[in-house]
Amino acid sequence: MALGKDDQIGITLLRLGLGFDTRPGAVEQLLWEANKRTSLLVREQPLTLELGHADLFRSPLLVLLGQGPFEPLSEAEVARLSRYLRAGGALFVDDASPLGDDGFDVSLRRELARILPGRPLVQLSNDHTLYRSFFLLERAYGRMDRSPFTEGIDLDDRTAVIYSRNDLFGAFGRDPLGGWRLPVVPGGETQREMAFRLGINLVMYATCLSYKRDQVHVTEILRRRKWRVDGSGSAR
């Protein structure tokens, strides 16, 4: 555990738009899994903050869950989020909209263009550290399979904004009886497991940045990827 409460690894949900509270229990479940599978000691309970909250800069990892379009941010909010990202904060955006609803996507791209002008979202290649920060993954996963990739915006040597359209956090939540709140689409528990792996990788990437791109890891990772491709390939 970290010495102070501020220093525990955790996720802060951004209170913005309509979807921020649509995946109850998802953060807790993801961090419980991270706690169980990795050396991370985490604060499972998420904080939920508005952009103007004083504690925003105590939270290096923000998650924005979204559904449907949202109103443009005020100039002060744009400036604050831009300052947060440039100072070292990270933002993960998860589009939890139903298939066919692009309202959130449109709003998000509009606001990101204001927050980080001149830096459009770009597709993260499948050798991005996000896909190797703990588990070796080949592509993006989530409750849905809307897109095989994630997008992101780089600042300096890190990807400060990561955007998934696959309702990643929708795969995590459990109901009070222990069952999954939402089914994965198209389906299969492998899909949910891979979503968890991506979620854990996300937390690892937020805390370790490009660590797994260090040369000391590259050879071993390449060897394992090749083995998997040439071998069973069943984990894809």
């Binding site: 169980k36 599978r37 920060s133 070796l136 071993e220």
Partner: peptide, 22 residues
């Protein structure tokens, strides 16, 4: 850098080759 990403006490049913750990 060397970060300890998983300790021996952690539950892990995943094959080693699906992890990036060294």
């Amino acid at each position: 850098s060397f970060f300890i990403l998983r300790t021996s006490g952690r539950l892990m049913l995943v094959p080693r080759d699906e992890l990036s750990l060294i």
